[in-house]
Amino acid sequence: MSNSIDLHEHSAHSHGGAHHHRDDLGAKIGMWLFLFTEVILFGGLFLLYFSYRVKYSHDFHLAAKELNVVVGTLNTGILLTSSLTMALSILALTKRQKTLSLVFLGATIACAFGFLYNKYFEWGAKIHHGIYPGSEKLAEREHGEVVFFGLYYSMTGLHTFHVIVGIIFLTFFGIQIIRDKIRFDYYSKLENVGLYWHLVDLIWIFLFPLFYLLH
């Protein structure tokens, strides 16, 4: 068993080395650079949130009371769990436990869908109550509350978009693991999508208290 793996590894090395240029560190730096543009993208929105919160402190507190803390907390737990399974998926793959790696990756994707499911009902309830950008009911409220819900929809919306993109990439790389395109000795793609996934989690860590925990 170990012999065949060694042979395999050896052939992969000599083969890969001859035809493909591999630069795992370069790929990682590229990924981090992309993540920094993401930080600045969301950072700009956080700065906007900060200035409006200072200006409409009272309205923000009033509006935030309508958000469901239980759903917000649940989604925080779900995303933190998905971050754990993402890290475990990479760890399992490096330990040559391919099936276990796929199980953890599947759990990560399942968590992501769970997050979307909760978001769907959360937004659905809000829209049902007439709270959505451009609604007449919302326009009757205080200006600060309108701004709060505008920021709520744009920031959590942009975050949810990132979750959807994450699901697509995680699924795509899961297929590559099945096909041995990503393996224990060549997993920088999985590592980099992991970095992206943790960033999605990181952004939610800040979004959650800023929107749901204003009492």
Partner: peptide, 27 residues
């Protein structure tokens, strides 16, 4: 509290603790 959580995620899950110096500098 959010910053503490972020530090934990960056250091452990994102492995920055064990990364090359250039990645740390970029961050």
């Amino acid at each position: 509290v959010a910053a503490i959580k972020a530090m934990i995620v960056i250091n452990v899950f994102m492995h920055i603790k064990f990364d090359d110096l250039i990645v740390k500098w970029l961050l």
